[in-house]
Design a protein around this nucleic acid. Structure first.
Lengths: 147, 147
DNA sequence: CTCATATCAGCTTAACTGAAATTG
DNA sequence: CCAATTTCAGTTGAGCTGATATGA
């Protein structure tokens, strides 16, 4: 047995703590699901972001993901070395390097998506289809408003 | 300037990635806000959890926060040493140690809450009051369903 | 005996600060 | 000169696996 389910007081955790809490539950499950594939949760988010954006610089990705530029550099390095991300110099700004998802990255993402859709289903099992749409839309608005 | 806001494709990130994304934005802001206080985001969540539960064992906390028991031990240690958490042996199960928030912990939490309510306001600025309630309720249901 | 609890030890990875080179 | 981009280097912290001891 795993012990009795904890009772909750009247006042639930405030929004910032609640987000952290849900994230920890999500990460535990995603980590387990993608263990066969050699990518971390953050690396996976980065690949998804690049897929969405199509093309972006390292600095731009750092801002969107709320990381320091240095952290983004170290995050990108192994992905580029593995050929998941393609790097091309920006013709207009010679200091910039444009990043996009390589075919290998796209293939890996498609492969992983088979596992993660299952995880998503189990994560949202407590919600109705309408509520899932609602939650997704609200989170998306919060996320995009914070860039 | 911080560059143009990225355009988003039609298909937004799936729920697991979206949660991670929001969490990173939240953490960046909470970290900055609580920097004067010597606690991390996860330690803070732990204190909030203990406040909610009133009393819990280390193993129970590890399950609710989706961490390994070992990780919970190392997370608790500095907090107990600083007197933020009180440890009392369980009279019925001699192997267990019951944990509760000490007065020092309660005071620290009250102190921090002044900063975090500001952060919460800025995080949810894009949502109406009704939408905030809705988002909070949905996240709470997801979190509790995953213990 | 088996399962749960608690903890020690070692390790890996993530993300930080600091510093520097380059370009607009 | 100043601001933005990229990257190297060193450092801390968070969370993992493995192993161990003890109690229900």
């Amino acid at each position: 047995m795993s012990g009795p389910a904890p009772r909750w007081a009247e006042r639930p955790p405030a929004f910032p703590h609640l987000v952290k809490w849900v994230e920890m539950a999500v990460r535990a499950r995603v980590d387990r699901a993608i263990r066969p594939h050699p990518v971390s949760t953050v690396q996976l988010l980065l690949l998804v972001m690049l897929e969405e954006l199509g093309e972006a610089t390292s600095a731009q990705l750092a801002r969107t993901m709320q990381l320091t530029p240095q952290a983004m550099t170290t995050l990108l390095k192994p992905l580029a070395e593995r050929g998941l991300i393609a790097r091309t110099p920006d013709p207009t700004h010679r200091r910039r390097v444009l990043l996009r998802l390589a075919n290998e990255g796209r293939a890996l993402l498609a492969d992983i998506r088979r596992s993660t859709t299952e995880v998503e289903e189990s994560l949202l099992a407590a919600l109705s289809p309408a509520e899932r749409v609602q939650l997704h839309a609200l989170l998306m608005r919060v996320a995009t408003s914070l860039i």
